[in-house]
């Protein structure tokens, strides 16, 4: 068993071996597979199927060694062929050239890390120099000069946030995000998220209150993820509340879930647009009117994160009365290895 009987044209192209030479030979003399990260280590494409007797799609990151020594990234699967009594009489091995997919994956990953570093550097420069102007480090600015420097500073900060949001989208969509739950004090996270919005809360004279259920002690969540959820809910509430509006944050326990709720008495979401709230880049008409700066990425990021950690997001809203956003996530978070954290 293992002697080749059919060998198609693509197999000839991939392996560099003519069908006439391959047919009748043992498979291991024609198809040489190894691992992408260690091409010297040979992998047997049929052994597992042969011992287990069932179909297997082989793990990614295998390479085929062509007859001329060139390595071709492939995805592969193998299935046993049985006779009418169920005895294995052979195997079908399917190899697919994934050079193009790998190239695209690689350039996506490279773009994300390039963007992460290269876009931030000039933005940091603008932030730091405008900050020095604003803090009168080199002399007092006139009120118009101060205003212009403030506008530069605000825009640049907005750009940093946008870059971070885009990076998070890219990382979530590429599935490379690491989830790293740790024991945390939830009220500390809530307090720090509220503090980040201090200036706007003060300017709009908003009243922000919070309550964390005492039953939630020693929960394990990824701090970054919880922060992103809270920041998004809270900054939306701050943006869409009227002057002297109220915002309330509550964190409660429901069986094995943590439920976060952020409610406000702001402008609300028009009923006919509610279905699109978690769609990437979507912004409701009244939201656009009140705040033209939003990216339409925040709630998409939240919903995508929660989908990946077995959580849920939903909301209740009525126009001109207010909105409550909810997120639920498992109390003991699931760890997932990845090569990138969220930002």
């Amino acid at each position: 068993m293992g002697y080749r009987s059919v060998f198609n044209f693509v197999a000839e192209t991939l392996t560099g071996v003519k069908a006439s030479k391959a047919i009748g030979k043992h498979y291991s003399d024609v198809v040489a597979l190894s691992l992408e990260e260690n091409p010297k280590l040979k992998v047997d494409c049929i052994a597992d199927v042969s011992t287990m007797g069932k179909s297997l799609a082989m793990s990614n990151h295998r390479v085929l060694i062509r007859s001329n020594g060139i390595l071709i990234p492939i995805s592969s699967s193998a299935s046993p062929v049985r006779d009418k009594d169920g005895r294995v009489i052979g195997f079908v091995v399917i190899l697919r050239d994934v050079t193009e997919e790998r190239r695209v994956d690689k350039s996506k990953t490279e773009f994300v890390s390039l963007a992460s570093h290269q876009l931030r550097t000039p933005l940091t420069s603008i932030n730091w120099y405008s900050e020095m102007l604003l803090s009168d480090d080199i002399g007092k600015l006139s009120s118009t000069q101060h205003q212009y420097a403030q506008d530069i500073h605000t825009s640049s900060n907005r750009m940093v946030k946008l870059v971070n949001a885009l990076l998070n989208v890219a990382r979530l969509e590429m599935g490379v995000v690491e989830i790293n739950p740790e024991k945390v004090d939830l009220s500390d996270i809530v307090k720090s998220c509220i503090k980040d919005l201090d200036t706007d809360i003060f300017t709009k004279k908003l009243v922000v209150t919070y309550k964390c259920d005492k039953a939630i002690v020693g929960v394990c969540v990824d701090v970054k993820i919880l922060t992103i959820i809270l920041q998004n809910f809270l900054s939306n509430s701050v943006k869409y509340c009227k002057i002297r509006g109220n915002i309330h944050v509550s964190i409660t326990k429901d069986k094995s879930l943590i439920v976060i709720a952020v409610s406000d008495n702001g402008i609300g979401i028009p009923k006919d647009q509610q279905k699109n709230v978690f769609t990437k880049l979507f912004r409701a008409d009244n939201a656009r009117f009140v705040d033209s700066d939003g990216s339409g990425l925040g709630l998409y990021i939240v919903s995508e994160i929660l989908r990946q950690i077995d959580g849920k997001v939903w909301f209740k809203s009525s126009l001109k009365k207010g909105t409550t956003f909810f997120a639920s996530l498992p109390i003991v978070g699931r760890y997932r290895a990845g090569n990138k954290g969220l930002v």
């Binding site: 933005l123 940091t124 932030n127």
Partner: peptide
């Protein structure tokens, strides 16, 4: 992280 931290 530079871009997240004001110079002050």
């Amino acid at each position: 992280v530079k871009s997240d931290c004001p110079l002050s």
